[in-house]
Amino acid sequence: MAEAKGVLVLGEIAGAELSSSSLELLAAARKLSASLGEEVAIALLGDTLDVPAKTAISHGADQVYAVNHPQLRQYHPDLFLAALETLCREASPRIILMSRSNQGRELGPRLAFRLGVGLAQDSLEIALDPATKKLMANRPVYGGNAVAVVSCNATPQMAAIRPKAYEPLAADAARQGKITSFPVDLKPEAARSRVVSVVKEEAKGVKLEEARVVVSGGRGLGGPEPFKNLDALAKLLGGAVGASRAAVDSGWIPASHQVGLTGKSITPDLYITVAISGASQHMAGCSGAKVIVAINKDAEANIFKEARYGVVGDWQKVLTGFTEAVRELTQG
């Protein structure tokens, strides 16, 4: 096997474009590549890769491996894994970066086991140790109550990066990069599972992950009805509605609204929490919010340790006054 070299980003396609989490990975990879003095490559899997390949180059890739195959048009974990395993063995990178996205959640660990190497899971920050040139990853553990600093003992060193932990670089249309087609041989029987049907909630309004303002509700709301008030407020602010796991587990709102460690990672400019206690597992999904506002009746609640502005009081009363004033301010 060739000497392991360079940083390989496992890209993801969203629609016809490179996903935003892939752009974040390229930014993280460029930092490593600067201290390594080695190239950044990206793997793209699909059947129409021209557009995402160009995007990848303008955002930091020196080299694109375009794995074109009709069977890779739709995401299938087993087929993607087979293709990625082949590519990773052949390209022989020093470091592999992937997103701890929905795909990354299943591909990362499985790929690591296939390659027989370790994966630094759900990392918030990665860097090279100046002395050893080893990849060091900071990853939150115990629901965010602690941070572990870990490194990988085998090559390639792998890290999965939490979505939104890095900011993409600005696109530079003048950047140059090489696009190499990487053919793979896929056996359809490698696919051990089959998607029979997909049930999607109808998308209405702003997407939670993209919203500039998010209004989230927790167990203290006491039922599903109050989420209508939150929804009305979110509409006024052009934002989206989120929730704590307690609210989701109570069946008051679908799981797709859950913010947190096992829910969505969001980075709005303004995050308004209503009757949420601020458990570390919840904060894990919103620590990147620029400003957090807390409305909670318990002055001792942990959320006030995380918030920039707080109101202690019954949510219903506070929210009524708040929403009225917002309506006047935004419409008056």
């Binding site: 572990a148 600093v149 870990v150 003992n153």
Partner: peptide
């Protein structure tokens, strides 16, 4: 083991 733990700490807020 495939991973080495170098440090474990409580993040400062």
């Amino acid at each position: 083991p495939r991973i080495t733990l170098h440090n474990l700490f409580v993040p400062q807020r």
